[in-house]
Structure formats: structure tokens, C-alpha cells
Write a protein that binds this DNA or RNA. Sequence first.
DNA 1: CTCTCTCTAGGTACAGCGTACGTAGAAGCG
DNA 2: CGCTTCTACGTACGCTGTACCTAGAGAGAG
Lengths: 243, 243
Amino acid sequence: MPSSKTPSSAKPAPPEAPELIWLRPERTGRGPRPAHSRTTIAAAAVEIADAEGLDAVSMRRVAAALGAGTMSLYNYVPKKEHLLDLMLDAAAGEYDLAALAPTGDPRADLRHLGHQQLALCRRHPWLPALVIARPGIGPNALRYTDHFLAVTAPTGLDGGARMEAMAMFNGFVCQYAQYEQTAAAGAKWQAELVGYLTKAAMSGEYPHLAQAFATSGPPADPDTAFDRSLDRVITAILAPPAG
Amino acid sequence: MPSSKTPSSAKPAPPEAPELIWLRPERTGRGPRPAHSRTTIAAAAVEIADAEGLDAVSMRRVAAALGAGTMSLYNYVPKKEHLLDLMLDAAAGEYDLAALAPTGDPRADLRHLGHQQLALCRRHPWLPALVIARPGIGPNALRYTDHFLAVTAPTGLDGGARMEAMAMFNGFVCQYAQYEQTAAAGAKWQAELVGYLTKAAMSGEYPHLAQAFATSGPPADPDTAFDRSLDRVITAILAPPAG
DNA sequence: CTCTCTCTAGGTACAGCGTACGTAGAAGCG
DNA sequence: CGCTTCTACGTACGCTGTACCTAGAGAGAG
């Protein structure tokens, strides 16, 4: 039925919906008003992830938490990926950027930012994995980006370099948080690991590993270790281009 | 049947199998000899992941590639996690550490190592995600660790600090590789992103972002950008503790 | 107000996943 | 030889993301 005006099978204009959820309008104004919002959906998902881990966040689970049918959720979130985007941005909205207003001292400002970010990652153990996995656009993430750029403005670095610096900074904090988690989770695992490593060190196959074991002091407390590494990262950011 | 000597239901000694796959012997010597080895299994999994991505690596898929039944695979790999461990170590086995023998110049050595690592991540796009997600023990990973410790020996840092440095280094390279992938994948996505960002920048909500857009030069080629950031990371590692 | 069109809500269904469990048979040890 | 212990593998369960379809609600056009 090529040109006859059959009323039903007309597909006028869904030519290409944007892949990025932030480019889809939350509401078009037509039809019944939605029962939920991106904010409430994200909040529900975050609550589940906080309580039971990221794997517990399934479309069914989130929909149920909202009191909705599973498939209804797909009206708001076309793919599960997008649900994760919403969670990511919800978490980014928890920064207290007002408390972090730039002071003109990039090192101090970045230290504060790093601490707040680590606290955020500790509060939401699923967060680091998401931050590392996906770019993280979205209004709140952009606010964070803007803040980072503001804080690093005094360095004299150009825009591109400061974006690269942010990626490094971000990546470092999240990786640290993630490492902290795997270390904390499972005393048995930890014990096995130590046993295995010492066995490996004593095998003679890894001389430098053995030597490192011998020369390293007692394990530092997590916060101290973080501060030390964070300072190194900040040094890298503030240092002149290279040598 | 509590105390009668029924022959079948005796559970003598599976008290606690180690969680770490490297602590389980590959072969106990009893029973028929296995038709596969960890090496061949890892190779099959790697081949699938290279060709179709990490998501395509399922127990069924790998088993089929080996010509085995799905559940047979569980004799070698008690959980899927462990299959990923095997893949990780197989990839770590591809380092040409002989070509990277320590020269006494940590900066140069780390540069070489970083380049080889990036090449490895480009060859196996699934690798960065795995490295970031899990600690990465295993014989080949330990060889890498040992090498890193050897290369950084001249810095005078103690064992613990050099391990922290390795985590930073590793994390940086893998994150960069991962970023590169998401950037490369999907011109449409990329286009949407640029559009969204410029719109955001022009909204006035993100003044520093807008300014950064304005002041950043033309996008650098990926290798240059990598080298620049890598050098910063190396600086951070080599720098005296902090200021 | 009425018509129409678009939206939301939700059920059903499918392919695929990890893996618990049970059975059959082969290979090494006593 | 026989006992034990391993390997191989089929079946089955609960879970996942999501394609597709049917109703019906509500806003805008006439």
C-alpha cells in the first residue's frame, strides 16, 4: 500500500531518536502525563544499588520499586544503559559544589574535591564502576566538569589540557575507591591473596616482588595512602608539561 | 538415614575450595586426563572477545568453541569470573618484557612500558575493562608486576609506594585506552555528544566549560595526547612525595 | 464539544545468560 | 580387580534485556 492514505500504517517521523538520553525531551506535552520522572526513576535505581549492589538493578526491579509494570519503564528509559546514565548523574548531583568554591589555590581545591569525590564513591559503592565505564555527561556531571575547570583555571593550562587532567583525576579517585572496595570485601579472599602472593614471592620467580615485600613498611591506613597518591596526581596536573 | 553407612551420600572433604583460581591445581593426577587446558580455554575465550567483544564471551560460547559441552567447562573454571581471570592473564602473557629490560632510566623505561601496554589494549579492546575491574593476579600478571618494580627500583621508593605507583600507571593507561575506544566507536554518538556539549556550553550554565571550548586548540592526535598525559603520570610517580 | 492522534501502561513472549544437580563412564591407586 | 575420583554433559531453573502488541487516557484541532 504505497501511496493510498491508509490511516494506521503511517510512520511519519520517528526517523532517528537520539542515542543520548539527555537529548531526548523528558516530556513532549502530548498524551497523558507520565506517572514518573527521570529523577524518581534514578532515585529508585540508586536506592536499590546502594542496598544490594549494581547487579541488583534490573529493569524489572526498578519498575517494581516504582510500582510500575516492567515495560512501562521503557517509556522513560529506552535502554538499560540510559538507566545507568541517570544513576550516574543523580550521584553527580550530590556534590556540594558550594562548599568547594575555588579559592585560587588549585592544589588545595583539588584536594578538597578529591576528598568529596572519594566520600561519594564510598557512599555509593557502585559509582566508581560506572564513572570508569562511561563518559558521564548529563547536567550534574557537567556542573562537576565546570567546577573542575574553574578550579584549574589558575594553572594557565588550556581547555583541552584541563579536560585531560580531569579525566586523570577522576579516573584516579574512582580506581582508588574501587580498589578499596575489593580490598574490604572478603577477608577470605584477602587471606588467600596474601598467601598466594607470598608463595609467589618465595618461589624465586619474582625477585623484585619479593624484595618489594621485604622493603615495604607496614600497610598505611587507607586515608593516608589516598592522600599521598592524590597529591602525586595533583602534582602531575600542576607540573609543567614534561621533562 | 543419619548414621548408617550408606555408601553414596558421604561428603568427606570438599570443605573449602580456594576462591582464587591460581590456588587450584590445574590437574590432580586422578581420573581421566582433561581434554583441555587453562591455556587453550583462555585462548578460545580471547579469540571470541577479540572478534565479538567481551559480552560475546559466555560459558556456552567458549565451551562450544572448544568442542565441549557447556557444563564441562565448569570442571576447569568453577565460575565465569575465573574465566575472565584466565583471559586477563593470557593477555598479560603477551608483554614482550625482554624488549623492555630495565635501562636504569625509569622515565624512559616507563614510557616504553606504557606504549607497549597501550598497544596491547588496542589489540584486545576488552582488556582495559577487565584490568580496571579486577586486581589481576596470575603468573603473567605477576611477571608484569615484577618488571614494573624492577624498572622503578632506581627511584628509591619503597615497595609499597611502587605498588601504588603501578596501580596509578596501570589505571591511567587502561582508562586512556578505554576512552579511546568509546571515542572511536560510533560517529553518530560522537556527533550527538559534540552537539549536546556545545548546546550546553552556550546555555550559559557552564561558563568555564564554554571558555574551555573556546581556548582549547585543535584536538591533538591520540598518540600525542597519550604521550603527554603519560609523561605527566610518570612525573607524578618520580616526583618527591609531595609539596 | 467532539474527533483524532499520540502518548502512557502494561502483558506476553523469546532468546540468552550463569549455574545447580544428577548421571554415565573412564583412568589412576591400593 | 575393585574402589575411588575424576571428566563429560544433558536437563532444568530463575533471571536478564527487550521486541511487540493491545488498551485506554488526555491534549490539541476543528
